[in-house]
Design a protein around this nucleic acid. Structure first.
Lengths: 162, 162
DNA sequence: CTGTGTTTGTTGCAAACGCAACGAAATCTC
DNA sequence: GAGATTTCGTTGCGTTTGCAACAAACACAG
């Protein structure tokens, strides 16, 4: 966890009770559901969720992609991605290929094995996600997503869909 | 991230679009606001949030407490707590004292330094939380908390308040 | 072209983590 | 009470993380 965000430094208030409740719920519930899905993947002997997001982002791009162009949407830091790519490359899920336009870096290219792996992960990921969120209805899910996105100041709706 | 949760193994459905949107938003936004608060503490040269939760839980209890009684509300595993306590004890924020009723374990006792530290962290934590969540109103925060707690199947409203 | 600053990505090191194995006390069973 | 089982907490070990320092390619000013 690193990353930075706009720091407007307001008048430094104490959070209201509703804000505190939202904060607590956000922390606990996100940890809980994250855990559920992580465990499902682990029990299936598959890599963790971060790997999926990299594979999916590469697949969505449809072409070899620069690490810096992955780091932003993935919310991860360069050095984290660097080592993540090390491991994924060692597992043969992607490979670093030359980038002729900019010799500082390289391009990340999905391998067939990487493509297969992403699909296989989805067969576990999807039901696990559905299971973890099954306590709320579709309309509630939409309202939740709306509130969260407003809270985070995000619109960017990256889909895990596969 | 570990912990387990009820695994009812439903019919293994693909998550609906609203569920997927909620899932994505939850992951991204929780990471974002968590990050904001973590950074605020780090910039102030203070320990991370987990330390606060331990200190606060001990303070709330009002008496020396067994590790196992902390681990559950804190959502952390025994071995994680064990090493966390190692570090906090080394920093003099709490100490392990004998437990006469059960010689396997011990009691964790908050030190004056630990008490002071928790208060000092709150002076940074509170404004950071308020800042991180300032994009939503109080009614929205309540609705968000309600949806999240429903989603997680939780009621348990632990307060960070200090 | 030369020097200065920026962008892109990697790496050495110390700290922290996850897991599985462990020891010791409590508890249960006969 | 002897022996098996469970609970509570710790630890060895290999992996992963965060941070700060770094190298190399680019960009740009003169």
């Amino acid at each position: 966890m690193r990353l930075q965000q706009t720091q407007l430094k307001g008048p430094s208030r104490i959070p209201s009770d509703p804000i505190q409740r939202a904060w607590i719920a956000l922390g606990r519930v996100s940890q809980l559901v994250q855990c559920d899905v992580d465990n499902a993947l682990k029990e299936a002997g598959l890599p963790e969720l971060t790997w999926y997001t990299v594979l999916w982002e590469l697949e969505r791009a449809g072409k070899p992609t620069r690490p810096k162009d992955l780091a932003i949407p993935l919310f991860i830091l360069p050095y984290q991605l660097s080592r993540l790519v090390d491991r994924m490359e060692k597992d043969g899920l992607l490979k670093r290929i030359e980038c002729k336009e900019d010799k500082r870096g390289h391009l990340l290219e999905l391998t067939p094995k990487g493509f297969t792996m992403r699909k296989q992960m989805w067969t576990v990921y999807a039901p696990a996600m559905d299971e973890a969120l099954k306590r709320i209805s579709d309309p509630e899910a939409l309202e939740l997503a709306r509130l969260l996105n407003k809270l985070g100041g995000l619109e960017y709706p990256v889909q895990p869909k596969g």
